[in-house]
């Protein structure tokens, strides 16, 4: 049988949190997915097919319709600006995006900001009327202020432990980040009933966060 809905989900913890949420909503998912190294996991009883993707690729899969739905962090949605529906705040993988720097940070003449989120960062500072040079990095962002590559960074803060261990402080909170349920434009119309039903089932089990 063809799955009713194809859902793209990041592998790992978000997959576990999301499937837990689905089960709490009464959807008949198997108790123990044999996730293993598989990239596609079936859940025939619920009529779902899960596509396990890299988090940053989820909105792309959904925009191009290879998945009807997806679960994506708001950080990726902000950065990529894909043309998809953002249907529900699932309230999982909560953290925030912040401007981070050394405790004694003072404004500099030629500000440089290192980040994995160059679009979000430039837009944020532009809206503040500040021109900054944005440097895209792929990992270990916390290094940048320590080695003098940038005077500040824009990154996600969950517990703040890495940040503190490297002697950095949160200078400003930018956005609250959680995982969102997103939908393809056409699927949202042509599979309206299945998608609305899923949303209605999920809604009551979502923690209403602040």
């Amino acid at each position: 049988m063809k799955p009713l809905l194809k859902i793209a989900i990041p592998k790992g913890r978000i997959f576990k949190d999301a499937t837990k949420l689905f089960r709490a909503a009464g959807l008949p998912l198997p108790e123990d997915f044999d996730e293993g190294r598989k990239l596609i996991v079936q859940s025939p009883e619920a009529g779902f097919e899960f596509i396990l993707a890299k988090p940053v690729d989820v909105p792309t899969y959904v925009e191009y319709g290879v998945a009807d739905l997806g679960i994506s962090g708001k950080d990726v949605l902000l950065e990529d600006n894909r043309d998809v529906y953002e249907l529900l705040d699932l309230n999982i993988a909560r953290c925030h995006m912040s401007v981070i720097g050394l405790p004694d940070w003072k404004p500099v003449y030629y500000p440089r900001v290192a980040t994995k989120y160059p679009h979000v960062a430039s837009q944020f500072f532009r809206e503040r009327g500040q021109q900054v040079e944005v440097i895209k990095l792929h990992g270990s962002i916390e290094l940048a202020p320590l080695i003098g590559l940038a005077d500040r960074i824009v990154d996600l803060v969950e517990t703040g432990q890495t940040m503190r261990e490297n002697g950095l402080v949160e200078l400003e909170k930018m956005y609250e980040i959680t995982s969102r349920l997103i939908a393809n434009r056409v699927s949202y119309r042509l599979k309206n009933e299945a998608i609305q039903a899923l949303c209605d089932q999920l809604q009551p089990v979502l923690l209403t966060g602040g």
């Binding site: 191009y64 290879v66 056409v186 119309r189 042509l190």
Partner: peptide
């Protein structure tokens, strides 16, 4: 307008 198997209007 939306068509089956086409992810864009």
């Amino acid at each position: 307008g939306y068509a089956v198997e086409q992810a864009f209007p």
